[in-house]
Design a protein around this nucleic acid. Structure first.
Lengths: 332, 332
DNA sequence: ATGAAAGCGCTAACAA
DNA sequence: TTGTTAGCGCTTTCAT
């Protein structure tokens, strides 16, 4: 039925070892034999069975990817970066969605390991103790993409979130704002609390602006949450005049909330985002945003993973990528 | 080093066959033995090797997915639908991006088959002859998601694109428009030419409106292309007053193009889109759009695939899902 | 209910 | 340069 390396060997009058050699590009094959074998492979339309290969070699040429949700542009960009580099190094990726559920993450990790993936790249707002434990016992390298884990005990690729947040908020402070709100995903996750929020607070303190808890709201990273946050904050006695948004969707919700209230962005309200997905250009006014290079984070993570898989020397396992602020029209 | 079924068998004083039985939930095991084996599995933290299992059983519990580009919201939604159902049936997915390159599609298909996937779901604007040929020789079932192939010789999941296009254009005609433009992805792909464009033309003809080639433009499905299409058409002697856009990004580009020219949507210009991604609500005015149920198409495709993989009876291999028009604010 | 043994299709020593 | 031969870790008859 299916044709195997054994069929090719027989037809070509060589041993299966020789066929294996030509398939794997081993140089120890006489050109003439190689041609002969190649011809038979062509004629029989032989296709190596990667599963058998994986069992024998203990390498599957596939890596696992654990992300919160592929239908979110944010993660989709990241995955594209991972996939492009994976392809370049001849790996395929098994994609899984965790929806940020710790239990699911652990279970996905387990499934991926049972499938003998050669490595894993994982992204999450928060790495639980159990996950950390499982990652430690894993027999495949795992790299964290855009994911902070305070001990830095795992290879990772990130940007200086805190510095970036400070820069972003300073941008607003420079324009004279005293009432600056911070709207982001759940404040309880380390990335939001210890980095973005911390940077926000530091920037305010440096400018002698009092931190007002009323101006800090943790929601989800969605458009509707941005809209809702606007509704909530605009009815404050002393409402904010500027916003630091944790994601583009939130920022766009804020813009529309303000516009629906008859306000002008950036003349009445200024907004800076932290993401810069393709959405940033698809609003009016276009979003000023800290550039979170998702594609690059994915690509670099995958590249880093290949180094681990090939046991190459690693100069720095916690990579920090540069960031910048893309000036557009929501900040004057 | 790694612990195998053999280790478990030894520790539990049973044969590996028995361990295999308990791992696979075979009922022919005395409850007492089952407990004993389970305990050892727990203690040794045994994890079955899916690759070995795949080689022995010829089933890998993984399916391949070939889509144009995961970083496009459109396809990302589809993939989420596929993944959710796959998870439900205990399959994992290997995700690949083809960028709509025929050659790459063929090669990806080949790679996936060599990895012994149990099935494949594929999406593309156009199924080439070669691809069709390769799909026919594949020893795994493949279903086409949101992909038209005129012979309908492969299982597929779609909506009535042509009818939907007619409805959409009629919506514009009802409002008195005579100059209606059609902007979509490449006109040379069957889905655009034979369905959306054909529907557009049919609707116009039914209303005795002459089809004007100047009002038909095939670009890519991006925001910038929408913007560019606006620039191109607004300087016509007799410019269009309404647009039928093939995707949300194009539609948003059109809206912004019109607004940047000082025009009001929907008072001066009306626009209807064909997609209804989450982007549709994230513009002002919000997009009126034909609902292309991407998530559902993905989910149903995957479900259909499981039927083929389990050799269940298939009542209808070319599934047609319902569509509707979501009325929002770009059409009066 | 359980075990023995033969593969699944390939890689990787080791020989020759 | 080429062939022989063990496995890789599991499923699956076929016995018992």
């Amino acid at each position: 039925m299916t044709i195997t390396i054994y069929d090719v060997a027989r037809e070509a009058n060589v041993s299966m070892a020789t066929v294996s050699r030509v398939v794997n590009g081993n140089q120890n094959v006489k050109p003439a034999t190689r041609q002969k074998v190649l011809a038979v492979i062509e004629r029989l339309d032989y296709r190596p069975n990667a599963v058998a290969r994986g069992l024998a070699s203990k390498k599957t040429k596939t890596v696992g990817v654990i992300i919160p949700d592929i239908s979110n542009v944010f993660y989709a960009e990241l995955v594209r970066g991972i996939e492009d580099i994976a392809t370049m190094y001849r790996y395929n990726i098994i994609l899984t969605n965790s929806d940020q559920q710790e239990e699911k993450e652990v279970q996905l990790l387990s499934t991926l390991l049972s499938k003998q993936v050669d490595g894993i790249v994982m992204m999450s707002d928060y790495v639980s103790e159990e996950m950390l434990h499982e990652m430690n016992r894993a027999n495949a390298p795992v790299v964290l993409a855009g994911t902070v884990e305070h001990s830095n005990s795992f290879p990772s690729v990130n940007i200086e979130y805190r510095e970036a947040a400070i820069d972003a908020v300073n941008r607003l402070i420079q324009n004279g704002h005293k009432r600056i709100a911070f709207i982001s995903g759940s404040i309880s996750s380390p990335i939001n609390r210890d980095f973005k929020l911390a940077g926000y607070e530091e920037a305010l303190e440096n400018a002698d602006i009092e931190v007002d808890e009323d101006l800090i709201v943790g929601v989800d990273n969605t458009y509707d949450d941005g809209l809702a946050a606007w509704e909530q904050l605009c009815k404050l006695d002393n409402p904010p005049t500027a916003f630091f948004a944790g994601s583009d969707e939130i920022a766009i919700g804020l813009i529309h909330g303000a516009q629906d209230s008859g306000l002008n962005v950036p003349n009445d309200i200024e907004i800076i985002s932290f993401e810069n997905s393709k959405l940033a250009r698809m609003v009016r006014p276009q979003l000023t945003s800290v550039v979170l290079p998702l594609y690059d984070i994915g690509a670099v993570s995958m590249r880093l993973l290949t180094k681990f898989m090939n046991k190459e020397k690693i100069e720095e396992q916690n990579v920090v990528l540069p960031y910048r602020i893309e000036e557009r029209n929501t900040v004057k």
